[in-house]
Amino acid sequence: MQSLADHPITHRWPPQVPDRLQLYSLPTPNGVKISIMLEEIGLPYEAHLVDFASNDQMSAPFLALNPNNKIPAIIDPNGPEGKPLALFESGAILIYLAEKSGQLMPADKRYEVLQWLMFQMGGLGPMFGQLGYFHHFAGKEIEDPRPKERYRAEAARLLTVLDGALAGRDWIVGDYSIADIAIAPWLRTLRDFYKAADSAGWADLHHVPAYLDRFLARPAVQRGLTIPSRG
């Protein structure tokens, strides 16, 4: 890909300003990680709604960008060495944007940030998602209690780990970082969308609830949570 116009996705979602970063997303907990990050760092971008109701994520143009048919994904027309960069996976995109902007990845805490980012990617996200399925969606109709209990117990354990790490800190590594941008949207989803927080011991946590409130109070977070607009 030599230019943005070379990529098939631009025929389905034409850019209005081709020299801006293009975000293809939906306001889910993984999707808003990137819109929040872009709002925090002030990098100009265009957001395109990938509508799951219309099966956009399975369309040939989108699969050309992310063969794993998940959001979010980006194309940065001004990537490394001035060449366009196509990228998927929210964790990878957060790292890229932190390095590109020089923001939200404190140099002296880089690996600490990355470990908590991986904690979310490998733990909080998958486990909260499974608990949400069994608590809020069709899984609640399954009579066998063992699957839901497995994910409830693991979600509770992960929340306890996070709660302990936040003792004496406003943010997970002390400074606000991409780790917080990865973690907090999933806490919000567990509490407000899946409505499964109480089952995972939310009321017994000492630090996580206030941490989420601090995150949600940030102006960039408030903007990013609504991007892309569902129309």
Rank of each mutant, 00 (worst) to 15 (best):
Q2Y: 01
D6C: 11
I9S: 13
P15T: 07
P18Q: 06
R20T: 00
L21T: 10
Q22Y: 09
Q22G: 13
Q22V: 10
L26F: 12
G31P: 02
V32M: 06
S35Y: 09
I36E: 00
M37V: 04
L43F: 02
Y45M: 04
A47Q: 05
F52A: 03
M58R: 14
A60R: 12
N66Q: 14
I71K: 07
P72K: 10
A73N: 07
G79L: 04
L85Q: 07
L87S: 15
E89S: 09
E89A: 09
S90E: 06
S90D: 08
I93W: 04
L94P: 03
A98M: 01
A98W: 01
S101G: 03
L104K: 00
L104E: 00
R110K: 15
Y111C: 05
E112A: 11
Q120H: 14
Q120A: 13
G122K: 06
P126I: 02
G129I: 00
Q130G: 06
L131E: 04
L131A: 12
K140N: 03
I142P: 06
D144M: 07
P147Y: 07
R152I: 10
E154S: 07
A155S: 15
V161M: 12
L162D: 09
L162E: 08
L162T: 06
L162N: 08
V173R: 00
Y176C: 01
A179W: 00
L190I: 09
Y194T: 08
S199I: 08
A200V: 09
H206T: 13
H206N: 11
Y211H: 10
L216V: 08
A217S: 15
L225V: 05
L225W: 02
I227A: 04
G231W: 00
